[in-house]
Simulated assay, not measured.
Amino acid sequence: MLKTIAIDGEREALAELRKAAAGGFRKAVEAAIDDSIEIIAEEARRLVPVRTGRLKRSIKTKRRKNGLSGDIYCDYPQPQDKKKTRKGKKEYYAFAVEKGVKKRNIKPQPFLFPAVDHTQKEVDERMMKVLEEAMS
């Protein structure tokens, strides 16, 4: 048995859904995600401990293929002296800086997770602004 439900503002809601499906909403959200991950990456670059600057320069952003999420990550910087690194071995020191290494007595100096925490309010406001604009 089928049931019909009447909703106040049904036409407006359907118009909003059509507008969102047309791609304008998705493009706005993708732009907001790009802005948000760049805001976080900039904060991470500001917070990262710098000795040579290679780790700071390796902080990158990338929006995922689905377009509705993104990543902030650190590449494995190339060693300054390639003779000291075994062929094909990657340097995993971004993780060592972020989390520390107990065996080597390296204390953690977090920069990625604090960057997310420090920018959370700004990112949330940016996303809410996009949602409000899309719904108006």
Rank of each mutant, 00 (worst) to 15 (best):
E91G: 09
G53C: 04
G67A: 07
E30Y: 05
R45Y: 02
I39H: 02
V101A: 09
Y76C: 01
G67Y: 04
V29M: 14
K103L: 02
I39T: 01
H118C: 01
K129L: 12
G24H: 08
A31E: 11
S58V: 00
Y76A: 03
V48N: 13
G100M: 09
K84D: 13
L131M: 10
E91I: 06
R18V: 03
L2E: 15
E122P: 00
L2H: 09
E38H: 08
P79H: 03
K56M: 01
F25G: 09
Q78V: 00
I40Y: 02
G9P: 07
K56R: 12
V116L: 09
K89L: 02
T119K: 12
L131S: 06
S69H: 07
L55R: 07
G88R: 01
I39C: 00
A21M: 15
A13N: 10
A22C: 09
A28T: 05
L14T: 14
G23M: 02
G70N: 08
V130A: 05
A94H: 07
R11M: 08
M127R: 04
Q120R: 14
A13P: 06
G70M: 11
A94N: 10
K3E: 14
I37Y: 08
G9N: 10
A21E: 13
A94I: 00
A6E: 14
E122C: 00
A28E: 07
K82S: 10
K103Y: 05
E12D: 09
L47E: 11
T61G: 11
P49Q: 03
P108A: 03
I7F: 07
D81T: 11
R104C: 02
K90W: 09
F25A: 13
K87A: 05
L55K: 09
F25R: 12
K103G: 06
A15D: 15
A15I: 04
I40N: 06
P77C: 05
K121A: 00
R63S: 11
N66I: 00
R18W: 10
E125F: 00
P49C: 00
A21V: 12
M128T: 13
G23Q: 08
M1N: 08
K129G: 03
V116C: 02
L68F: 02
R51N: 04
D117F: 08
G67V: 03
K19S: 15
E16F: 12
V130W: 02
I72H: 14
D81L: 01
E98L: 12
Q80P: 13
I106P: 15
R86K: 11
D75F: 03
D71H: 09
D71P: 15
K82N: 12
G9I: 05
K62Y: 13
I106D: 14
L47H: 13
M135K: 07
D8G: 11
R46S: 08
A94E: 06
K102T: 01
K89R: 04
A41F: 08
P108I: 11
A20K: 14
Y73W: 10
R45A: 04
K129M: 05
K99L: 04
E42A: 06
G53K: 10
I39L: 03
I59M: 11
G100K: 11
R63Q: 12
K62V: 14
Q120N: 09
V29Q: 05
L17H: 05
I40S: 01
G70L: 11
A115P: 12
A31N: 11
F113I: 15
R57S: 07
T119C: 00
